[in-house]
Design a protein around this nucleic acid. Structure first.
Lengths: 104, 104
DNA sequence: TACAATACTTCGTGATACGATGTATGCATA
DNA sequence: TATGCATACATCGTATCACGAAGTATTGTA
């Protein structure tokens, strides 16, 4: 997929990956893998940003001797997903324009 | 619309705006206005990039004493629009994942 | 004689994805 | 026991991008 378009959905994908249950970096990558390939550097950059924007909270734990950070979505994060619905509708409108060369 | 998502469609929108007939900056803004607001600085940046990427060609003219640059889409530009179709399909897949929390 | 509309240009800034690289542990297997 | 792979997170630097601000110049209009 085109890099720029990708940028528009990565954030929300990560939020969606932790919406139903808390998860951690490595698992998020595996879970998203079938729908969207994503490197570690990219994911951790996004997770950091999402935390700064209060879209998720972090809890550090230790599992089998390894550090593991669990991410939990916040109300603001859930709202972000909802807003994406509207954006997707706009996207479809613009898509129609692009394909048919005319609006609606 | 979210800035990042916007970035993913701006290029293709501009290409779509000149697909059926050559056009110039000021007119492109007016034409796209109903579907997508777009400032001059943004558009001219995009047009320059599209030219550098050989997605369009430019022909300078003078109309009523004012400089007017006509942009003409190339084969590569048309291909870009076609590729966007595939990207849009992927987008829809990812959208389903985000909304339903599951693939397919 | 102002002011709006037309038309294009340049500069600087803040976001962003991502490759490269690094650190550290547990586990299988040769 | 040594090697390599999977797990797990972190940081740095770079390229790309949209966009506001500001500027230049002409035509038409109130």
């Amino acid at each position: 997929m085109d890099t720029q378009l990708r940028k528009g959905i990565l954030d929300v994908c990560v939020l969606a990956a932790i919406r139903n249950e808390d998860s951690y970096g490595y698992k998020i990558i595996k879970d998203l893998n079938s729908i969207l390939e994503l490197s570690e550097s990219t994911l951790y950059t996004i997770l950091k940003r999402l935390e700064e924007n209060n879209m998720l909270t972090v809890k550090s734990t230790t599992y089998a001797g390894r550090t593991r950070k669990y991410y939990h979505i916040t109300e603001i994060g859930l709202n972000r997903i909802e807003e994406f619905k509207n954006d997707a509708q706009e996207f479809v409108k613009v898509y129609s324009f692009i394909m048919k060369g005319k609006e609606q």
